[in-house]
Design a protein around this nucleic acid. Structure first.
Lengths: 144, 144
DNA sequence: TAATATTAATTGATATATCAACGATTGATG
DNA sequence: CATCAATCGTTGATATATCAATTAATATTA
């Protein structure tokens, strides 16, 4: 039982990611899930919850609860799709967009720190590697 | 407000990691935290909880609860350090080691899939990049 | 030695995530 | 048209994570 695969890439990734999330979360004061949710909303005009769920891989119950809370805080609005009342369409309010701009500034600072010493090519290479791995493990499933 | 940094490395990393954890978790049937905990225990003979907490960056309350449960399942044993009764020394049982061997086999399979098409050099490069990023964000803090 | 401070582990309160079950709406089929 | 199936969102039960407060043991210091 030799340690040929210990401190493997998965282990390193996990340790790294935990660190990253912990630091980044403290920067922005927002949990990773919520950050991803807001980030997604920032990039679409209006979107229904199931699409959010699928793209973010967050449980639909969690989606509902996040959005309820965000709606209460005035960050998003929700309305039914008039063409199909099953769908709930979500969009950021102006306030919501403003908040996110602040987060994004934090994020830029954080990324600058994270990527210190990385050339453009290295960054591209890294992104590409992540992409390849993601393809490897999502292979054989329907793409989003 | 241009999208110069959208779909940034952080976003990609998050999306990728969520995927990875989801798939990997389904493979082994163990949560990421618990997996990391067991993995650590596998590599040390005996360790106290605070050290675990610091190295894994898991809350000490979570450590306690995990270990209680694992103890109940016969995966670990706990005893007080005779030299200092504040410390609780944890170690895997034989059963625990056997279980982990099974997880490790799942992990090997999963990693093979994850790293399909990656040469040795690419894997090393990727690890190194992660390491560099980790250093970038842990800079100025006491190392573990 | 007695009083105080520090450290490890635990517990309680709370927040957030997941799974399963449910209700409401729409689509499909006889 | 009526029934059945499928889809979206919500809720409840439960598991797990975090923070703050607590307890027990040890170290420090007057």
């Amino acid at each position: 039982m030799k340690d040929s695969m210990d401190n493997s890439i998965i282990d390193k990734l996990q340790n790294f990611y935990i660190q990253l999330i912990s630091q980044f979360g403290h920067c922005t004061g927002v949990s990773p899930s919520r950050f991803r949710l807001l980030h997604k909303l920032y990039h679409v005009d209006e979107i229904n919850q199931t699409t959010l769920q699928k793209e973010l891989q967050i449980d639909s119950a969690a989606i509902t609860r996040h959005l309820k809370q965000l709606e209460g805080d005035g960050i998003v609005t929700r309305r039914n799709n008039p063409d199909d009342n099953r769908f709930t369409l979500v969009r950021l309010t102006e306030l919501g967009r403003q908040e996110i701009v602040a987060y994004r500034e934090e994020k830029i600072l954080f990324m600058a720190q994270l990527l210190q010493g990385f050339s453009e090519e290295e960054q591209k290479l890294f992104s590409h590697m992540i992409e390849r791995m993601r393809n490897n493990i999502t292979k054989g499933r329907n793409e989003e």
